[in-house]
Structures are given as structure tokens and as C-alpha cells.
Amino acid sequence: MVKITALQKRYGQGAVILDDINLEFEKGEFVSLIGPSGCGKSTLLKLIASLSPVTSGSLVVDGMTPENAREEMAFIFQEPTLLPWRTVTRNIELPLEVLHTKWDKREEICARTRKLVGLDHVPDHYPRQLSGGMKMRVSIARALSLSPKILLLDEPFGALDEMTRDRLNEQLLAIREQQKFTAFFVTHSVAEAVFLSSRIIVLAANPGRVYQDIRVPFAYPRSAETRESPEYQRCVAEVTKVLRAVNPDHP
């Protein structure tokens, strides 16, 4: 699905952000990118999204350049990035409006994705009337409205409290059971990464490079109970250890 070969990234003549990245991802994988700040995990996500150009090496998305594959991808930002002058429904249908999708089709997709994220009861609310968690759900619904093959998430739940974050993680996996997208998820939280992912890429900083490629051993579907299982907790401990090794300044 995504193949990265000898990739290097630097901004202008500045320091090398990512160096010699070689990775290959299959369709349907849920990949978390984790590592100390400055390791370039968000940059890697932006490169896949073609929001930033590759300096050298190659990056192929579904057999295409990232730019040409953009229609197959959706990006969920750290902030909900909702348009405050639009209602929940109008925010969700924004990508469809840009594509000139027919009105009745728009309506139908909107209703479906709204239900999917559990926002059926607030179709005409404005963003300022919603909690942080609800805003994020609108953002997810908007991304899903185009039924993307690849979902790119840049620390989407970082600003939320732990309860809301856990709940949204569970919801995200439940949605994935239905929509079957491939996901790339940037996070700081080991627990979140282990809970969500089938694979965790640990990056090292200065310059950003792949430190370890970890397969998460237990299967989907996962639920809140998964967090109590010994194998989950063992995996969290293991990844935490790796992350400490890569980031010795901050034990």
C-alpha cells in the first residue's frame, strides 16, 4: 500500500529531518509512529499526505505518487480544524461539496458517517457548542465521508482527557471494522499506540530514522477489556522500554 525507499527529508538547506527511511506497509495495517519530539514522525505523515515534498528517495502510495493518491487519503489533524461558521452536518459534507457531489448523495453519506461517529443527535450544532471530544468526532466523520483507503492521523487525541481519548480509540477501531482503511497514526502515548495498532514504528531523533519496527501480537477486534489483558500490558511495557532506550535524555 505504501512503500518508502531510501527517503530523506530536509527543509531547504536546514538539518536533515528524516534520513534513510525504508519501510513497507500492507493494506489494512494500523501503523503507529512514535518517538521523541523532533524525530520527524509528523513530517513523515505529511510526506505520505503530499502536504510536503520528499527531498530524495521514493515514496509510493498505492502505486502512485503521493500527490496523485491524495484522493484516496484523508488527514485528521491535531486540532479538529472545523469551520466554525458551519454546522456539524455542513462540516462533515465539506469534502463532498468541494467534489461537487450531488445533494441527495451528500445528505445520505453525511447521515451515515454522522451515525458512525455517534453524532446523530447534534446535526445542526455549531462547533462552539460542542465539547473537545465531539469536535474531534466531527473531524473524523469529515475524513470518513470520502471513504478513504488510507487514513492519516496526526496526534488527533493529544489534547483530550484520558477518558475521552480511550473512548475515541475504541470508537476508531469499531469504525475500522466497517470501513477497512489503512491507518497511519502519530502519537506520544505508548498505551494508545499499542491499543490501536497492528504495527508500531519507533523513530529516533537527530536525524529522524527508524529505530525499531514492532508487531503488536494480539488480534482485532479489541475493546476496553483488551487494556486489562496481560499481553496488552506486557506489550506496553516492552514498547515503553524501547522508547526509553531511544530517548535516553528523558528517562
Binding site: 499526505a49 491524495r70 487519503m73 488527514f75 489533524f77 486540532e79 480544524t81 469534502p95 468541494v98
Partner: peptide, 18 residues
């Protein structure tokens, strides 16, 4: 306008007019 908003519009392939 927030940079992320502009990036969002790029991701959904909006043209300059949109």
C-alpha cells in the same frame, strides 16, 4: 487562516477559488 485549515483544503483537493 490557520495553516492546518489550508492543508485540509489541499487534502480534499479544493481549488484556489473554493
Amino acid at each position: 487562516v490557520d495553516k492546518n485549515m489550508v492543508d485540509l483544503f489541499r487534502m480534499i483537493n479544493a481549488d484556489r477559488g473554493q
